[in-house]
Design a protein around this nucleic acid. Sequence first.
RNA 1: UCCACCAUAGCUCAACCGGUAGAGCAUCCGGCUGUUAACCGGAGGGUUGUAGGUUCGAGUCCUACUGGUGGAGCCA
Length: 435
Amino acid sequence: MVLSDQWIYIKDLKDHIGEHVEIKGWLFNKRSSGKIHFLQIRDGTGFVQGIVEKSVSNETFELADELRIESSLSVKGKVRKDERSPYGYEIDVDGIEIYQIPLEDYPISKKEHGIDFLMNNRHLWLRSQRQFHILHVRNEVIWAVREFYRNNGFILIDTPILTGAIGESAGELFNIEYFDLGKAYLTQTGQLYLEAAAMAFGKVYNLGPTFRAEKSKTRRHLTEFWMNEAEVAYYTSNDNMHLQEELVSYVVGRVLERAGDHLKALERDTKPLEKVQTPFPRISYDEGVRLLQKKGFDIKWGDDIGGDEETAISEEFDRPVMVYNYPRNIKAFYMQPDPQRPEVVLCDDMLAPEGYGEIIGASERINDPDLLIERIKEFNLPAESYDWYIDLRKYGSVPHSGFGMGIERLVAWICKLEHIREAIPFARTIYRIHP
RNA sequence: UCCACCAUAGCUCAACCGGUAGAGCAUCCGGCUGUUAACCGGAGGGUUGUAGGUUCGAGUCCUACUGGUGGAGCCA
């Protein structure tokens, strides 16, 4: 038999039942007895088991015997549907070509590993099935985000990664030498640039890496993470909240539709995700504080809402909840005060269910130039760095609102991960930059 | 920056009141014709993170350091 027939991907096996095909991939596990080898093969699109029985040529049977974990190989054989396989299909192998037998033992075993070891071996850990499913969900999340904006008339505006001294506060910025211009910083937010773009394009968004030099060590923090921000001219805080719930419900819906098998493989109970339909509940900061006091938290008006408090609030609801209008003193300088109550600002945080906390931070922005200048001074920020930002308020200033959504937090919640570091291919945390 | 915890074989972990290091997996050898983290038999594998200290004796107790983990603050 001619064995040079077509190479296909594992995900397409279902369309080739009974045919003789070739799979190119890696051996992720092997079980053998004297007369039969079970080859567990991964090709990046899925997983399948190849069967090598003694009845094949001696040469092929010997090759199967030599294979070690993570050997790269091509197998040829006939596709068969089989209930005994966890993947539904099997290949009766009659030809094996080895690309490489690993030079050393593969470090990641079939048993458990500690997180330090796994993160040190992240370049190999990516090959594991769990990571395969998580990163497929991430892929669908990002596609869905982009799709949402495209469907809703937004323009993609890529905001700069290198910036001058501008953002919400200094001290949490990574800095580098920038030729003769002194220090440049890695972006902490593209918001200010999106505000400029909103005055040019109306509805804009970005999606890219963001950097925070905070020494945070928790399951919710990375020093480098991907953020989606949106900014819309003429949107009030209420319009903004509506946009956020439309976005999040859309993304969750698309992920359920397109990555349902991945969620199932991760043993993620999808029932809570199916409830993520608009409208989302909204409670004011005032109501939030009263609710927390009733639940026994030691919190008074004016205090920020911490992680445990966020969880306690989100427990009251079966879908993401938006907590709006926080005290002005605990929020950023650019947020628009409530004209009825100047001690609070028009803003909201969206808290994910199941204890995942804040996934979106949002606000209406100050549009009055004098008030903005006053706030910049009040926060002791260098006014000269904000010259162009203030400029935006001089030429047809309008009410406008926007938000930032953490992609990894969203992925961690949708996959129900213990830690955000599995939601990004190569996590950057305070003590980890390698690999 | 602060608080807590952890560090023993390649990996995951044991080792009682301080008494001289043990298992599973991985590796190698042998067996097994449907395995599902396959299984069965055998073998090799250790300066117990580093440096001091207490003690007749330290993996175990004390101090410092290094590396890591979780959390607080802060945020997405």
